[in-house]
Write a protein that binds this DNA or RNA. Structure first.
Lengths: 153, 153
DNA sequence: CTGCCTGCAAACTCTTTGCACGAAT
DNA sequence: ATTCGTGCAAAGAGTTTGCAGGCAG
């Protein structure tokens, strides 16, 4: 899905929900979709302000749930205090994250079996799965060997 | 492993690390091991104070990492703001959680394949896995049908 | 025009920390 | 006698919310 198509999807989602299409929301959208790596709410605020400097922190926090509900952004909580976000490119719904402790980097890995696992395990408990997440924390071999890593900032 | 054995393990862990065996730490240990369900730091404070009312919130927060490092407690972060804890009964190291959104209950499911997955995926990235977590969020069928659920408070 | 949306700043939640006193070794 | 552990209260980080004014529909 192209950025233009995602942008259209966002406008349509807002309209259908009776939400208004404001400059701030569009600036936040554009800021998010200009990124290829994970970003935090605070970073998104910076990016959005570069497009429209009237965007406030509150509006960023109020817009993020809209964009995750409309399946435009994926929220990634690695349990580090702050949440990360990433534009959803294609149909990559079922993904696991590998979090490098040394390089502070998050890798997204397709993991279609998660959905099967969630259904299997839930049905035994009389539950219907809504979502699943699989995360691996790991150390960087190169960083531990050489003291630095190309991925690291 | 019995509670008495776990208690001994805790004392030994403290001594080996040069940490002191205080009444407060023992009260927090006993409070935690008197529980069969997940609890929060705040709940643990209540439980511990019932044993020794001199226990403070700060000491609970300072003791929790000691107990997780010594593999006596498992920390479970389901991304809900507060963290949950559970005494580790046997050798159930690799577990997934199924979180019921309606009943606010956390089920622990043995998932030994997680370790294999973590290794496989990490090695492709030049990483060495440290830990992995797998969580499924689900709705309660009975709650959605009848409006109540036996597991719910 | 109506009422949702906004920015601002204060409030909130969970957790961490600085300090001076107290207790374990 | 040392030195670590403690309670208290304040600080901290990330996020949410109440309010008065502003802009989309």
């Amino acid at each position: 899905m192209s950025i233009a198509a995602s942008r259209e999807k966002f406008r349509r989602f807002l309209s259908q929900k009776g939400l208004r299409v404001t400059n701030q929301r569009l600036a936040i959208f554009d800021a998010a979709f200009g990124r290829k790596e994970h970003f935090t709410a605070e970073q998104l605020l910076d990016y959005a302000r570069a497009i429209d400097d009237s965007v406030s922190r509150a509006t960023v926090y109020r817009t993020l749930p809209i964009m995750t509900e409309s399946a435009l952004l994926r929220e990634v909580d690695i349990g580090s205090g702050e949440k990360f976000y990433l534009p959803i490119a294609g149909n990559n719904t079922q993904v696991a994250q590998v979090v490098c402790i040394d390089c502070d980097k998050i890798f997204e890995i397709s993991a279609p079996f998660m959905e099967w696992y969630g259904s299997t395990v839930s049905s035994k408990l009389g539950l219907t799965p809504v979502s699943q997440r699989l995360q691996v924390s790991a150390h960087c071999d190169e960083y531990r060997r050489t003291g630095s890593c190309p991925r690291r900032g």
